[in-house]
């Protein structure tokens, strides 16, 4: 086993965009994880902000129950604007 825990790395590529997952790395603590993330994932100014999160702190939905888990949204087409009929001539709706 690696002595160093695994960290997931998220980078904000520029102001106005959200942080996006870019990969992971090993580091002994959060400070080192941030520095390593800078060197590994932003060598060409790919980011203006970095988050590191311990991989073990992430709770993920299970691919096994993918269908049941996401099913409830499947039959609710009325959540989309295209579901509705708009009479001819109506504007700004």
């Amino acid at each position: 086993m690696s002595i160093e825990p695994l960290w997931e790395v998220f980078v904000r590529s520029r102001r106005g965009l959200s942080h996006t997952h870019v990969g992971s790395l090993h580091a002994p603590d959060a400070t080192m994880a941030l520095r390593n993330a800078r060197d590994v994932y932003t060598r060409r100014q790919e980011g203006v902000s970095i988050w590191v999160v311990r991989a073990t702190d992430i709770t993920a939905s299970s691919p096994d129950e993918k269908d049941e888990f996401f099913d409830p949204a499947g039959d609710k087409v009325y959540r989309h604007p295209t579901f509705y009929e708009v009479p001819e001539g109506v504007e700004h709706l």
Binding site: S2, L25, D39, R43
Partner: peptide
Amino acid sequence: QDEAGHGLYLYAAAETLGVDR
């Protein structure tokens, strides 16, 4: 330095398959 970085991206990808670097 890039080659070192490429190695790290790839070890990280391998680890998602359940092995340890």
